[in-house]
Design a protein around this nucleic acid. Structure first.
Lengths: 365, 365
DNA sequence: ATGAAAGCGCTAACAG
DNA sequence: CTGTTAGCGCTTTCAT
């Protein structure tokens, strides 16, 4: 057994090349300057020894770690996969290493894990953050931050064009003859959720649509199931879900109750996640440019970290498009109350009460 | 505007508390020792200033960064989501930060990105690595490594019990009356693929099963489609796919050609990814304990990093179970050649040739 | 227990 | 262009 392999340092290279350490350092600083005989010797020696600059040691004097953090509200959500990939690609292309941290849908956890990593990174992208505005601002004061799928004044953001996306969805539904649409709300802490609902509410009138909201629900398949349980008490012929996962869960639950999708209920999701195309029926959904978002967010972050002015207060808005698949259809003409409605669930007094209070709430909002 | 916010250092705390820097350092080293009046003062001062130890600076003298790297062959593959979550959880619970790097199914890229991060981490978990054995060994010589879903002598590994998993799948198929099964092979560089095929081939005889393999194909939905295109030239009533993604793609492609799943072809996948339960028909699959694997891998890694003996040469094997859903069924009795077979695709000479050579290959292997 | 001093591996002024 | 000299913020002997 040889001695414990200590990686070669800059000094080892310096000695081997017969130059000062600082000279070695310079040679690695701007690989553009190639020629000088000395530089060549240094390279050679470095290669010989298998020298690789220690990024940690380098970070100390410079303050730059060449690492960025990507914080995700929930790694388990397939929505994030392409974002992660895009972010990673942008980081790699710039020679940066990416930290990934999963907030597990908890703003508190998000803060905590971030606190630990904060001083180890040159910048942070917060994807669908569940943190409070003030927490985000606090972070942003210490490191460059770009927000993904959330907007906050004075913090650079990249978002999908939710208003237009929602408009496409609503217009599609209106065109199919629907006149009442239910929005299945996502987490209250979700900026995108607020954005989507607002866009729907504001745009509905012009399309001759009456929009209502129920929720909030967890942005998951289970959440969609919960939404369905509530939905049956006051169904509409069209539904827009906060995201695909919910849409999928909703469809499953409704189908289990005997409903026919899309014949009886048309549903559209958001995000166009991987599974959207695989479920039955394939999901009509507002597709977000996931990969591009990850890419853009990181690129902007790095630009800022390099000193670029965080341009404009306006969030960078990436276009969303509607992917029409089979979960939406012409509204059926017969208005008979569906068999899968309240008849299936025994109409307990509480359900009736809930129904009453809820419609009130919807009206007053 | 105040001066550029420089985070407080240990010296700031030291001065505020009226002690030496080394004393502050100690106070943070073992938070167990609480009492001493001095310690209290230090805590107070630190809290006051909002001091947080700089992990980079700490890493330099100690050589410990409190970071680990998780390398994933393809973040885009939903298979990894739960693994990532599990790994992240284990890292967080131990106060570690996790680097995530996406190898994009390329062994070369994997090496490269790893080289950059290597000296910044205390350990590495390689999930479904596509690197060569020798590359892995080289890495393992420099930092603690644990392999996920791959086994390599002298390197700690955690794997799912592929042999048993495959046995369950094969037995299930045999029980349903199938006698010939086709294995859709995954990437050649995949250790799990070799493992699965070998397990099937070796176990088939005892179950009265004849096993054949086609491929390799990409471990994706598209790869499954490719597999289907080849499969129709010499169909069997049962198929086992390298993973769920391929199984899904396979089913889709075959369905598009008019085949009925599972009536005409039973298919089982591997991994039980999120979407497996959502597709039509829901996929029968060998479920890997994804979350537990991520968790276990990281825990073992950290134990080793802390000096534990990488116990045993034996890989840690986590149990797999068969989740029976609707993509498998009793073998149908009528042996009529299916309509979706070669009739649909014009039986070009090359296809025939391919068929011949392939069955030879299968026999000789 | 606490303080002083010497680095960890690298970069960043300065001089020559 | 190269060498010298200080540090970056923290830990760690070694005295006290």
């Amino acid at each position: 057994m040889t001695a414990p392999e200590r990686p070669p340092t800059i000094y080892d290279v310096a000695k081997a090349a017969g130059v000062a350490a600082s000279t070695v350092s310079r040679a690695f600083a701007r690989p553009g300057r190639v020629n000088s005989e000395t530089a060549r010797r240094i390279r050679e020696a470095a290669a010989e020894l298998g020298y690789r600059a220690n990024p940690i040691a380098r970070a100390l004097p410079t303050g730059k770690t060449s690492m960025i953090a990507l914080v995700i509200s929930d790694v388990t959500n397939p929505f994030h996969n392409e974002i992660i990939r895009g972010a990673q690609a942008a980081a790699a292309e710039a020679g940066y290493t990416m930290l990934l941290s999963d907030a597990q849908e908890s703003g508190a956890r998000e803060r905590e894990t971030l606190d630990r990593a904060l001083s180890a990174v040159d910048g942070i992208v917060l994807a669908t953050s569940r943190m409070s505005d003030s927490s985000i601002r606090t972070i942003a004061k210490q490191r460059p931050v770009v927000l993904l799928n959330r907007a906050l004044a004075d913090v650079p953001c990249v978002v999908t064009d939710n208003p237009r996306g929602m408009h496409h969805a609503a217009a599609h539904l209106a065109e199919l003859g629907h006149s009442r649409v239910t929005y299945l709300a996502g987490p209250e802490a979700s900026w995108a959720d607020g954005m989507r609902w607002r866009s729907l509410r504001e745009g509905a009138a012009d399309l001759g649509l009456h929009a209502r909201r129920i929720g909030p629900f967890a942005p998951t398949v289970a959440g969609g199931g919960a939404a369905a349980a509530e939905f049956v008490h006051h169904p509409t012929s069209a539904v827009i879900a906060y995201n695909d996962l919910m849409a999928i869960g909703f469809i499953r639950a409704l189908t289990a109750r005997g409903a026919r999708i899309p014949r009886e209920v048309s549903v559209v999701g958001f995000d166009n996640i991987f599974a959207a195309d695989l479920v039955t029926p394939p999901l009509t959904t507002v597709a977000a440019p996931l990969h591009a978002m990850g890419l853009t967010a990181v690129r902007n972050l790095l630009a800022i970290a390099r000193g670029a002015q965080p341009r404009a207060q306006e969030p960078v808005s990436l276009p969303a498009r509607l992917v029409v698949r089979a979960s939406t259809a012409q509204r059926s003409r017969n208005r008979t109350s569906p068999a899968w409605g309240t008849t299936r669930v025994s109409p307990s007094p509480s359900a009736v009460a809930a129904k009453a209070s809820r419609s009130t709430a919807a009206g007053s909002r």
